[in-house]
Amino acid sequence: MKTLVIISHPSIDESGSQQFLIQALSDRSLEQVTLHPLEKTYPDGVIDVKHEQELLKSHDRIIFQFPFYWYSSPPLLKHWQDEVLTEHFAFGYRGDKLKDKELGLVLSIGLSEKEYQTGGQEGYSISELTKPFQAVARKTGMTYLKPLSIFQYAYMSEEERMGLLIRYQQYLTLKKPDSLKPREEWIIAALKETATETLRTDHSDFIIEQVIEHIEDNRMELDELRMHIDNYHE
């Protein structure tokens, strides 16, 4: 699976959260992921439609990554949609080029999560406010993914940021980023590749092996339990 991350931010170099996300990707993730910052690619705002459509065609998962300004994206991403998602390409007669791809959102949001509900300061949920993106996915035949919403990045603790770093990589690269089993496989693959030179313990290789084995043993036990339960329901 190949993922295209279309980033829209008016001043990406000054954005702590955007820089964090860009740096978060490991070499392993980058084999699968293309980062595409719109404002840097098109500083004059003139979009190369053909090139953009080719990019879309050569990727399976499309991510719009942006700060959630006034319940929408920065203007260049809207302009990009107007220019690139044309009839006969994205919809209409023979406009099936995006069909069966996935569309996901990575949103950085200035307020806390609890404000996005009835009675909260914003009054509406993120699901309600992102309806136009859901409608784009629907019209173009794409599967809409649950968004990755990052609330108040500036106030996140270091531990929370580390969690975000992993969640972000999984959001971009995993077929089912929420499910336990694919996340286990992802962690195991990443552990196998992690460099032990950056670890100061001499027996770090052994520990990493033990950790992988423990995760695999747990998975076997989980599958066995599930099998027993399913047998009883048959």
Binding site: M162, I166, T194, T198, L199
Partner: peptide, 10 residues
């Protein structure tokens, strides 16, 4: 013991 941020996260 790790000196690498991404490794720590992992």
């Amino acid at each position: 013991s790790s000196r690498d941020y991404k490794q720590k996260a992992l």
